[in-house]
Simulated scan of single mutants.
Amino acid sequence: MKTESTEYLIRNLVSMTDFVLIRSNEPALKDCPAEIRTIHRYAEFLQQPLKLEMFVPIDSDGFFCEEPNHKDFLEADDFVNNGFFLELNDYEKALNKILFKGFSVLPINPYQDTNFENLIGHIVPLTNGEVMLPFIDNANMTIGDFIVMFNLLETITVEKKPLTGKEDLKHGVIILTDTALKQIFGHAGY
């Protein structure tokens, strides 16, 4: 039963994520079990600003990063100065920033490849093979906002069929990379 002296930290409607983050900062919950800390980390994960580099490999200058071609390295006259290992290092760094598996950038027109220009600040068409998402980098969206948008677009654009129990459950699912899972669970073992 509520008494007049009860003090609530939250007095208005907030999202579940905000509620978890606010409540987990209370002194009584600081020494809580590991599962509660995992829930807090997931709430923090959902609050991250959405970036293009979470979907596809983007270099530090904002350009789409392709895997360096080993044949170019092997066919080069000057093995030492051809830049292959620098490109490979940049590509691997870009891969480690990806949080969601299976996304790619669609060309804006059939005659243009994905490495058309700096992608930051542009509308970039992303796809997971089923849903096309118009992604705008720096649009003040969070990962939590993205989940809502993805589910809405998937509901509108993907033909729904009656469930038979034999479906591939990956349909409509956003698969997390090891990088994302480490952020949520706090260690490599999940």
Rank of each mutant, 00 (worst) to 15 (best):
A94P: 11
F85D: 09
E26L: 09
T164S: 11
Y91N: 09
T142E: 05
T179G: 01
G83N: 13
K51P: 03
T157E: 07
V14N: 02
S15W: 01
K170T: 15
I120V: 11
M1E: 06
I98K: 05
N25W: 00
V105T: 08
N140D: 15
Q112M: 11
L50S: 12
L29N: 10
K166L: 03
F135Y: 09
Y42K: 11
H40I: 04
I98Y: 04
P27K: 09
L106A: 10
E87H: 12
T17V: 13
A94L: 09
L46Q: 14
P107S: 04
V173S: 04
L163Q: 12
E92I: 14
H187Y: 01
F79R: 13
I10K: 02
D78M: 03
T155M: 07
Q47D: 15
G62M: 08
A34P: 01
I108Y: 02
L119D: 04
D113W: 00
D78I: 09
E75V: 05
V148H: 12
V105R: 11
P49C: 06
Y8P: 00
I22H: 03
F19P: 00
I184N: 05
E130T: 14
F45R: 12
N69V: 10
D72K: 13
K101W: 01
V105H: 06
T142W: 01
T38V: 15
A94M: 08
T38N: 11
A34Q: 14
G102W: 00
L99D: 05
F103E: 04
T164G: 12
N82F: 01
P33D: 12
T142I: 04
L88Y: 12
E26T: 08
I36C: 08
I136V: 14
A188N: 10
K160A: 10
S15R: 04
G165R: 05
A43V: 14
K170V: 07
F84N: 07
A139I: 06
V56D: 09
I39P: 01
F116Q: 01
K160T: 12
K160N: 07
I136T: 14
I108P: 00
F79A: 12
V14E: 09
L153P: 05
Q47I: 05
I174Q: 05
A43K: 14
E117F: 00
A188F: 02
A180R: 06
I143C: 08
P68E: 10
E35H: 12
H40M: 03
F135G: 02
D77V: 07
N140L: 04
